[in-house]
Amino acid sequence: MKNILDQIVDQKRIEIKQKQQQTSIEDFKQSSFFTQKVRSAKASILDPNKTGIIAEFKRKSPSKGFINQHANIKDVVSGYEQFGASVVSVLTDEDFFGGSFDDLNEAKQILNIPILRKDFIVDEYQVYETKAIGADLMLLIAECLTKDEVFNLAKLAKEIGLEILLEIHSEDQLEKVNEFIDLIGINNRNLKTFEVDTEKSKQILKKLPEDLIKVAESGISDPEVVKDLKAAGFQSFLIGENFMKNENPGNAFQEFVNQIK
């Protein structure tokens, strides 16, 4: 029986084939965003005037269904930026996470900080697409890519000016880190079982290359956990559901930030 990650990747490959019939890579290269220089997530995370938090806009998840179906993205992400987010992450997967390119586009219209496209990138077509829709940073998930695939996708992303966040979950995925990666995230949540374990993340952290920005991802709801992970050596924290489950995610973000100062 396939786990949820396998199901998502299978669906993503079907989507890509359908999209290729409508929009070509050459079409992407004509986008107004394609030649623009991206905003650096690395620089924004290291900015002492910001929190280091990658604040996520997420309408739903495969495990919990809708979290905040009717949230207004401009209201949410403007709150994130106002109260110190370093980066905003926007889900663009529609079937499993309720995201869309429209969400990312609306965020792009008002934000002055970098945007991470959060999706399941498995094909070069999506790399060009990511730049064309205005994202600054692209997620690669080691769990669903081979070492060579991570290398080729990251290399292409760098060639067209994107930054790359590589997400890993286990020590055996460290071999997939390469010279084109800018940030490395350790997902506290196992994508196959959805169990959360921050202690395991701290153990993997000790084996990461020193020159990469380290991001703790998923399952973070307690400001004390952020303090603990920061003390362990993490520089950034990807948090979404904890804010999005509130009626006003921007206010929830502000309250969280006040507790980690």
Rank of each mutant, 00 (worst) to 15 (best):
N190L: 01
I220N: 05
A135I: 08
I121C: 10
L208F: 06
F151P: 00
K206W: 04
E167W: 12
I133L: 14
G219S: 03
E129Y: 11
L208V: 07
F151W: 12
Q126M: 12
E210R: 06
S221T: 13
G219V: 00
A154Y: 04
A154S: 15
L153F: 03
L137N: 03
K131G: 10
L174C: 10
K131P: 10
D148W: 02
D172S: 14
F194V: 05
E167C: 12
A154G: 14
L140V: 05
K200N: 15
Y125K: 05
L139I: 12
N190H: 05
I121P: 04
M138Q: 12
Q173P: 12
T146R: 09
E167P: 14
A132Y: 07
L205H: 12
A132N: 08
F194G: 06
L191Q: 04
D123R: 04
I168S: 07
S170W: 08
L156G: 00
A216P: 14
D172R: 14
Q203E: 11
N187F: 07
S221C: 14
V122P: 09
S201K: 04
L145G: 03
I184D: 10
I121K: 04
K192G: 02
Q173I: 01
L205S: 07
L139H: 08
K200I: 09
K214N: 04
K176H: 12
I220G: 02
A157T: 05
E179Q: 08
I186W: 13
Q203W: 11
A157Q: 07
D182M: 03
E129N: 12
I141R: 08
E163Q: 11
I184W: 11
K155V: 00
L165W: 09
Q173C: 00
S218A: 03
K206L: 14
K192I: 04
K147T: 15
Y128P: 01
F180S: 03
D148V: 11
P209E: 06
T130H: 09
F194N: 05
L191E: 08
T198K: 13
T193S: 15
V177L: 13
K207C: 13
E149W: 00
L140F: 03
T198W: 12
N178P: 07
I186H: 10
L212C: 01
D182Q: 10
L208S: 07
A142Y: 01
Q203N: 10
I141C: 05
K147H: 11
I204W: 09
I160G: 09
L139F: 09
I168C: 03
F151M: 07
E149Y: 02
Q203F: 03
H169D: 14
I133V: 15
R189I: 00
A157L: 01
I186G: 14
D182H: 00
L212A: 01
